[in-house]
Every structure is written in structure tokens, then in C-alpha cells.
């Protein structure tokens, strides 16, 4: 996994609530057997007409917006557990998703792939959307080490939560399997205890 400590970037606004993973990556694209390439089909039914022509009004088709941060309405990532959703967002080039609320499984999947979910208050989310509306090039600073999210232009700042373990994994680029494999003896002892 790629290491993550700090990012300063502009952001792409997607002020829609309850965005489910079927929108992020529709089921018909889940036939691949590798993790790569899903970015091409990220939000595809919102990006394209059925004949493949781009929907001009969708934010990913608007050259004004760019950056490594995706800012979305509350309850982002609900629905299907498909990790392909996190892969697609990452593959497209995002490293951070900001929302006022995340669905559980999506949040876990994102963290397992080096994509940082940043949960902020409803008010702060609003401030972020307003800042982008005012200036699409405005930048934000995501500081994982100090767990701070800052609107660079105004200095407005908020802290965000992340488990100490997951933070450590992201900063060092570790994944859970390395850790779990190191526990083999403890797991065996647990199995033995339960069998009796």
C-alpha cells in the first residue's frame, strides 16, 4: 500500500447524499479479476449517456474541477460491500474522500487501500462546498499525522477521527495481513481454547 502522510490539493465537489457503491462502480464492471483499471468506469452512468457520450453537466466532466480530494454529501458509500468502489476512486486518482458520514463497509475498504475517508461535520462540509464554489482551484490540506483538515484560503480547520492502528498502517504503508500473519500462534491458542 502507498504511504500517506499529508496532501495539499484542490477538490472535486459532489454534493449528493446517499451515494451508493452501485453508482460509484456499477455491477456490470465487476467482472475483472484484478484490482486495476476500475477508475475508467468510476461513476460511469453519471458521466456518460448510454451511447457513451459524456454528460457535460456532471462534475467529473467539468475541466474546472480537479484534484486528489473528492468531497461528497452525507452517507457516502452505502449499499454493496464491493471493494471495487474504493479501487475505482483510488484508480481515478483520488486519495481522500470527504463527507459528513460514511457507510461502514466502504470506510473499511477505503482504509485498506490507502484511500483516506475524512469525516467532517455537516457545517464544515458546507464550508468546503462553498469554498470550492467560490474558487474551484482553492486548495485543502489533509494532514494525517495531526488529523487535521484545513481550507487553505481561509485557514478554517477541523480535526478528524481515525483509529490509531489504521493511521499507523497508512503512514507506513502496511496492510492488515502482515499483522494478522504475525499472530498465528495466538490464533492457534484461541482455537484450542474454544475446542475445549
Amino acid at each position: 500500500m502507498e504511504k500517506f502522510t499529508k496532501i495539499t490539493s484542490s477538490a472535486v465537489p459532489l454534493p449528493i447524499e446517499d451515494i451508493d457503491t452501485d453508482q460509484i462502480i456499477p455491477a456490470r464492471f465487476l467482472k475483472a479479476t484484478t484490482r486495476e483499471g476500475f477508475g475508467d468506469n468510476l461513476f460511469i452512468d453519471w458521466r456518460q449517456q448510454s451511447d457513451g457520450t459524456p454528460k457535460q453537466d456532471f462534475v467529473l466532466n467539468n475541466p474546472v474541477y480537479s484534484g486528489k480530494i473528492l468531497v461528497a454529501g452525507k452517507n457516502f458509500g452505502c449499499g454493496s460491500s464491493r471493494e471495487h468502489a474504493a479501487w475505482a476512486i483510488y484508480d481515478y486518482g483520488f486519495r481522500v474522500v470527504v463527507s459528513s458520514f460514511f457507510a461502514d463497509i466502504f470506510k473499511g475498504n477505503a482504509l485498506n487501500n490507502g484511500l483516506l475517508p475524512v469525516q467532517v461535520s455537516e457545517d464544515f462540509l458546507d464550508k468546503i462546498f462553498k469554498a470550492i464554489e467560490k474558487d474551484p482551484d482553492t486548495t485543502f490540506e489533509v494532514d494525517l499525522v495531526n488529523q487535521q483538515f484545513t481550507i487553505s484560503a481561509t485557514g478554517d480547520q477541523t480535526s478528524f477521527e481515525i483509529s490509531a492502528y489504521k493511521k499507523d498502517c497508512l503512514i507506513n504503508g502496511f496492510d492488515d495481513i502482515d499483522y494478522l500473519l504475525s499472530l498465528r500462534e495466538e490464533v492457534e491458542a484461541y482455537e484450542l481454547k474454544r475446542a475445549n
Partner: peptide, 17 residues
């Protein structure tokens, strides 16, 4: 339900975090 990274974790260790 779990994601694919966790599927791999269960494969490897029969545990998840």
C-alpha cells in the same frame, strides 16, 4: 459483509480486524 482485502485476511489468518 466484508471487502476483498478482508476476504484475503480471512483466507490467510481466519481472522479480520
Amino acid at each position: 459483509g466484508i471487502g476483498t482485502s478482508q476476504v484475503e485476511q480471512v483466507f490467510a489468518s481466519q481472522c479480520i480486524l
